[in-house]
Amino acid sequence: MDFQIALILGQDGITNGAIYALLALALVLVFAVTRVIFIPQGEFVAYGALTLAMVGNGVLPATVWLLLGAGVVVAVLDGMAALRAGQSKRLIAIMAVNLAYPLALLGLLKAMPLAELALALQVLVALLIVVPLGPMMYRIVYQPIAEAPVLVLLIVSVAAHLAMVGLGLLFFGAEGYRTPAFSDARFEVGPMTVTGQTVWVVMSSLVLIVALALFFGRTIYGKALRATAINRNGARLMGISPALAGKLTFFLAALIGTLSGVLISPITTIYYDSGFLIGLKGFVAAIIGGLASYPIAAGGAILVGLLEAFSSFWASAYKEVIVFTLIIPVLVWRSLTSHHMEEEE
């Protein structure tokens, strides 16, 4: 391999690594706050990318029907809970958030010439459709068993992942899509050519990471999420309910996942089931950080990206084997350095 190729591979690795870093951060966040190992994170990537592709093709994305369906389920669950607690006043708010919003969005999308919208607006549409699925998913799937052991939550995550992949096939078909690049610019930096999309991916990741850091460091809601992660009981005593923290966390995770999908789809073709492997690579990184450390997870993500890029050159057939086998020594090292074995039923 010559230097030129190494530079290209390095660039690929860092681009993908930046995406994995975002996903890893979301996974660490979700686990820390809710103890959920968020396997469906990858599906948000695929849904984001493919919803954008549908919008770009001028088709009404089927995910909006999922949004409506999930809204109905949440409205029924929350509505019944409110009635049982004798708080019928809350019904209007519940209906507005869970039914009126999806319906309004549906109407708007039907009225708009989707394919002719500017790319930025198309991205916004994808976000408006896919991101609310995050908190709704928390409400439907996880909130009823929020106190269950981590292993049960994990199995539920795998089940939710499976259902979302199946729905993805139903919504988007088996065909893969690539969305147009955000920028066709090319920069000559010394001996290498950097594509505009790479710059977009890396810069967006950095901006998002900084924004998250500010959110957690400066705002009371961000602090509330950190507090929940550190001490759930303590947080409850401050009036920070696990349900609120869970929905907020899943909102962030869905936002990160959808944005990652939007960013990566100009680089690789995304199929309905591509999210899983992308998400798992984020997982490898998150586990390098012990599902606890954000900076180590981000660093691990870059490492995973580079490892993947270089192994695809040297042993392309074994690319996935190498990346996923990496996780085992990391896991062993992690569990040897963590001390609490007991009481993790």
């Binding site: 009371i220 507090a227 001490n231 005593l237």
Partner: peptide, 29 residues
């Protein structure tokens, strides 16, 4: 109503000031 539990349940990895701010979370909301 507020409870100071036996185990204190502080947010150990956060600053004293952040702990206090979170005490006002419900009022802020």
């Amino acid at each position: 109503m507020n409870l100071v539990p036996e185990k204190r349940e502080l947010f150990g990895e956060m600053s004293v000031e952040d702990n206090l701010v979170l005490g006002a979370f419900q009022r802020y909301r």
